[in-house]
Amino acid sequence: MLSIKNLYAKVDGKEILKGLNLEVGPGEVHAIMGPNGSGKSTLASIIAGRDNFEITSGQVLFEGKDLLEMSPEVRACEGIFLAFQYPVEIPGVANIYFLKSALNAVRKYQGLSELDAIDFLTLAKEKMKLLDMDKKLIDRAVNQGFSGGEKKRNEIFQMAVLEPKLSILDEIDSGLDIDALRIVSQGVNSVRSAKRSMIVITHYQRLLNYIVPDKVHVLSNGKIIRSGGKELAFELEQKGYARV
């Protein structure tokens, strides 16, 4: 589904990714762990299409198509979703209006009919229930005044509504208490299927108790230095990155 080959990228002239390789198959969940500054968030940004970096060489293919040639909106319509580490607050735009616009843009691209207000609301309510989300949040401005936990729930809520093929969860566990972590993870797991893949970026093994990965990778200094099964995460937790 996703194939990254020998990727090099710079941010502000500084090389962050230095020959990264990653293959994610359909239905697979990959965890990427690594110390601060290893390039985890840069990788997430590159896949989603942020323009604050320069790719110096390498290739990123999504279902065989060159991802790097696509605008962020086309990537989203093709089925890529980034759950932001720091979701953006957008005053003046109601959450429900935003998400309906997004879903209909994606559906239109995929040749599906657009949902009307009633059908959308039914869908939204169903997904909100899944995440035990306060109904009031849907009418509020996007992320504005949301607590850290509410923002993360809102990301997963969007993911549940948009049903992407590949989701990148960038430190979805940061700022969550145990209960919120469990609920957010439930939401993530509800989207898992044999066709949907995920890349879970995290510092902590704890998240992987809830979202159990098929593969774990260690990203260090711009490269994946080790890959293994879910047991690798436990090893990292015990030994730390330095000794892996």
Partner: peptide
């Protein structure tokens, strides 16, 4: 904010 909206499929 523009990127956030675009990353959800809304064109520029």
């Amino acid at each position: 904010a523009v990127f956030y909206l675009r990353s959800r499929g809304i064109d520029e």
